[in-house]
Nucleic acid binder design. Sequence first.
DNA 1: CGAAGTGTTGAAGCAAATCAATTTTCGTGG
DNA 2: CCACGAAAATTGATTTGCTTCAACACTTCG
Lengths: 264, 264
Amino acid sequence: MANPLIMKLAQAVDLTAEDRVLLEFATADRRSVGANEDLIQECEPPETVKVVMDGFACRYKTLPDGRRSIVAWFVPGDFCDLHVAILGRMDHSIGTLSPCTVVEIPRETIEELTGHRRILRALWWATLVDAAILREWLASMGRRQSDRQLAHLLCELLLRLRAVGHADHDSYQLPVTQEQMADTLGISAVHVNRVLQHLREQDLITLQSRALRIPDVERLMEFADFDPTYLHLRDVLTEASMHRRDSSQRASQPVAESPLDEAT
Amino acid sequence: MANPLIMKLAQAVDLTAEDRVLLEFATADRRSVGANEDLIQECEPPETVKVVMDGFACRYKTLPDGRRSIVAWFVPGDFCDLHVAILGRMDHSIGTLSPCTVVEIPRETIEELTGHRRILRALWWATLVDAAILREWLASMGRRQSDRQLAHLLCELLLRLRAVGHADHDSYQLPVTQEQMADTLGISAVHVNRVLQHLREQDLITLQSRALRIPDVERLMEFADFDPTYLHLRDVLTEASMHRRDSSQRASQPVAESPLDEAT
DNA sequence: CGAAGTGTTGAAGCAAATCAATTTTCGTGG
DNA sequence: CCACGAAAATTGATTTGCTTCAACACTTCG
């Protein structure tokens, strides 16, 4: 099985064989974590950078009344906390949604990795895509009805998981509970259940025992008003997503030169 | 009047006199823009980096049904698009909310600025704080009632504006319409109106002809469940915010060393 | 001074929350 | 392998926060 981190970063830059070897070594030391366990808690400054290699994790905030808001999902290949090192303190927690395999990369290894131009740029890209996803989620939560919002999330996951080889053309494992989805979408668990049924009734999805299948990907994307541009992926613009609307605008571009990067 | 960009970046690092001179020069060439004008449109790759020096601007997404979602507010001192350069394409637009004074900093100037360690780090910090704000907004939209959500936004603006010298202890200019607030909070303009009245009835705020006053800052923060940690500000933790709950956890820290920064 | 944009108010409707009960699934130990 | 308990999913009834539509008032500015 291919390394999801390498697959992901290859979306941003052309990694050399040397880059790949370095990344392979950096992610060799894996450990297993059960579901619903915290990887980092609020106020706890992390010493290592964590990468999810298998399973789903999340970034979440707990409000004083006990309710929680999940503000990011981490799927295989995702860094959990690349950015936090520069800000003194965590303003949120990171925990697993399902059982996970994670890697903890020590600071020195990150420094070594970022000594390589392509990897440095790919890490930049990953950080910025995280922010782009956040913006899309915010827009989605603000202005989309919950059935479209959920459908949108499922489309996003399809592409993100495909990019790291964890989804095939129309299906993937979705190892999360309806309550976890509810905390992500900002709705109640009961309503998630009803929305899922609604999507099933319309034959937009199939979901049983954590296996999601999308009979007609294009139709679901249409329904969710999903435009994959914001994911800034290179490979995964499939037939389904390419043929929609103005496909010339949608073709992926190589990552642009960055002023900040330039200056290094 | 002090330079808001310098004031903002001084929140993150100790700028030297030389740093300040550089930043002053970089922001010398200002221009005025009316309200509701686009600074950058979707799909238009920006050639310069834009900084708001006066007035309010925003980052927004337009959904196909015409509704829009504002996913970030830019107040004086804020970069609009520092990050976009690395991703090939804009997945959103940037426009003014009120009349603004903006600066367009050419690529080369940015490269020159980022040649200075402290400035580079401060720009990093600014980017990460933007993401932190986005997370807080997402949590807020997901799990807070709209009166608390609006109150939370007003608290955030108080601190952000104070940091750049555009708010005093308990008041500031809020040059936006209720419709713009609605697009930000993900609710209808009518409801914004009612929520504002509700806040006024409770003497939590005063708002007339775009001037906001908060009679009891601490009480509004309590009401909004506002915890300023996520803004990662150094100076602006006032009496009001410091005395709440566990203040020892709340004192600002110097910006930590960053692995990515280290590697430069 | 008039027109357009903004703010305000009321009434009706709807999406989603809440509460509560029930069934199904899943993990675990006997 | 089955039985049990706990977690998760499902269903129904009721309530509520917010939307929508529509009318009207105020403000701002050319």
